[in-house]
Design a protein around this nucleic acid. Structure first.
Lengths: 193, 193
DNA sequence: AAAATTTTCGAATTGATTGGTCGATTATTC
DNA sequence: GAATAATCGACCAATCAATTCGAAAATTTT
């Protein structure tokens, strides 16, 4: 390898794919090594443990996600279509991260504090984005109701009714189906045509 | 439970979901039991082994798939839209079954002959359906080329070029992306607008 | 209502799996 | 060609996971 950081990134990306598919528990070091076409023991030259890899993956992904959201927040300025897109991106991102997240609680690993932090901060940002979306939506009259606060609450409640907690998804959820259901509710129910 | 068959079916469906998500190897009896809200040992009252459950699942799914295809073959009579639908159904079904299928080769289990049978038979039927699709397509002039045989080959090759072997998909493939790519090729490239 | 039977389950067993180590080997740098 | 960096195979201890088993609940039969 050219340099250590380069290789670490390669591991993070590769392991990330596997973690996101199978979760922490079901992902084995052998698997990661096989995917990297490397001896398992070589990985330990770059990382201390499986958990360290996992940590790195979560941080890496959270970062990407944050950037995506930052981009998304800008597209909120345009109406429905962009919003759809935003919701889609958001759901996809959630699916991915929630996999990592669930993976931890799955096992009774010692609690990673830093992940709780990520999540909390993330929730707050999410809420801000949603508010902005609602605000613009109301201003541009794509929403059907008067009080934006009320709408925000309505969406939240509706989503919860669909068993999709607004700020975190359960891993069993079939994202495609959920997304359709949610888009239906969002864009046929609450929003005007 | 009301009767034994009833319960077996419940197991098959539940286990099927887990198998299809994680494959044979990574699916544990504990997990299945937990999902069924039952003691693990109780399952062994209805099934001899994990492998027997797996067998049952594959047979069950293959049956559903066959029915879906039988339905799909009828919709081939109408042009493009229906075909799109057919391709979609087919890909979805492949994704599911291929998960079971790959799961076997993953491990060096003794080879299940009966699954090889299913696959072979299935491939033949697939090919027949594809032929029919091409034939109708040509007749209704939605295809762009003269020889239907040639087209069939072209599609096959194209798909293979996309790393999607026509008759079986690899499990790592992101079905949504692949599908879009394939539909593009099929309906913009080979078929007339 | 007790005996017989069916169904469920917790605990134990046993073999396999897996995260991680270590010393040796191979590449790379100086 | 020595010194350092990177890779690896073989190994270990701990955990896990499929299966068994006997006994406890349920249920049915008598």
């Amino acid at each position: 390898m050219i340099n250590k950081e380069e290789f670490r990134k390669r591991v993070i990306i590769t392991a990330g794919q596997i973690f996101s598919r199978y979760g922490f528990r079901k992902t084995t070091m052998d698997e990661i090594a096989r995917e990297l076409k490397m001896g398992k023991s070589s990985i330990y030259y770059y990382f201390e443990s499986k958990e360290e890899i996992f940590e790195a993956v979560v941080l890496y992904e959270a970062n990407i996600l944050r950037n995506e959201l930052t981009t998304a927040i800008k597209s909120v300025e345009s109406p429905v279509d962009k919003m759809k897109n935003y919701v889609f991106v958001r759901m996809k991102a959630f699916e991915k991260l929630s996999n990592y997240y669930n993976a931890i609680f799955d096992k009774n690993l010692d609690h990673f504090d830093f992940i709780e932090n990520i999540r909390t901060r993330y929730d707050r940002e999410e809420l801000a984005i949603l508010r902005l979306l609602i605000w613009h939506g109301t201003r541009k009259k794509v929403f059907n109701v008067e009080k934006s606060e009320y709408t925000a609450l309505a969406i939240q409640t509706t989503l919860k009714g669909l068993e999709v907690p607004l700020f975190w998804m359960k891993k069993e959820v079939n994202i495609e189906n959920r997304l359709n259901a949610i888009l239906d509710v969002l864009f046929n129910g609450i929003l005007k045509k």
